[in-house]
């Protein structure tokens, strides 16, 4: 894995992989969207089940992106690897975007189901906190001018967040059961039946591929920008 982590090798490899990744993402999105709007409505949730096909994949990518960011941060800190730092940095805005999408679609699902756009439900609340974790990480990156220092500080923050996430999740879960009876909201969410698993699964894979496609392009952008900057520095001095 780390053998490919040399920026030059990464540029060559990603150049070859990208067209396939773009194609696969587009095809999966087309199939997933078609299935999402054509499956019969759920007998319990009715048509609102269709919101799940855009909500659950966004939520999944939002969490996965944080895991990826923490892992890349760890590699960046331990192995002092610039590519891992860049990967963590570029994953954060994408993670924040998917978290925001999960929150908005979640509350649009909640309105007909719960009768209100926002309840302090365990999952919604921990996603709100996850969103703030992303914002803090991005803000820290932007605030420190020295690139190496920014990368290390942000990596430490990402790891603190990763250690804290299970505690946050647990405390929020505990808190919601304290303040509202289980009878109003089922904490596990309604069970989903088999016909919906296919569109859900395909959309989840499509979202995941989209995340990695965008991530790779963003990393390529950052590498190109750094080259430009160092070339400008080299010619001016």
């Amino acid at each position: 894995m780390l053998a490919y982590a040399n920026p030059q090798r990464f540029m060559e490899l990603s150049h070859r992989v990208l067209p396939w990744l773009c194609g696969a993402t587009a095809v999966l999105f087309a199939v997933g969207l078609y299935l999402s709007v054509t499956v019969p409505p759920d007998y319990q949730q009715g048509e609102t089940v269709r919101i799940m096909f855009v909500h659950v994949p966004a939520a999944w990518v939002a969490m996965m992106a944080y895991g990826f960011m923490a892992l890349a941060s760890l590699i960046g800190l331990v192995n002092r690897h610039p590519l891992a730092d860049v990967a963590a940095k570029e994953a954060a805005p994408l993670g924040a975007l998917f978290t925001a999408m999960a929150l908005i679609t979640g509350s649009l699902w909640g309105r007909p189901m719960w009768g209100t756009y926002w309840v302090w439900d365990g999952r919604l609340t921990s996603f709100l906190l996850l969103f703030f974790l992303y914002l803090g990480y991005i803000a820290l990156w932007n605030a420190i001018e020295n690139e190496v220092r920014a990368a290390r500080a942000a990596a430490v923050l990402a790891l603190i967040g990763a250690v804290n996430l299970p505690i946050i999740e647990f405390s929020v879960q505990w808190w919601t059961t304290l303040h509202q009876g289980e009878s109003i909201f089922r904490s596990g969410g309604p069970l989903i039946s088999a016909v919906f698993l296919w569109p859900l699964f395909i959309m989840a894979v499509a979202y995941t591929l989209l995340f990695f496609t965008l991530l790779i392009v963003r990393i390529r952008t950052e590498i190109l920008e750094r080259r430009t900057r160092s070339a400008a520095l080299g010619s001016s001095s």
Partner: peptide
């Protein structure tokens, strides 16, 4: 910047 960094991390302490 500090409040933004600390808000999500301090949530469990406030909750309990």
């Amino acid at each position: 910047l500090l409040p933004l960094l600390l808000l999500p991390l301090l949530a469990p302490v406030v909750i309990f």
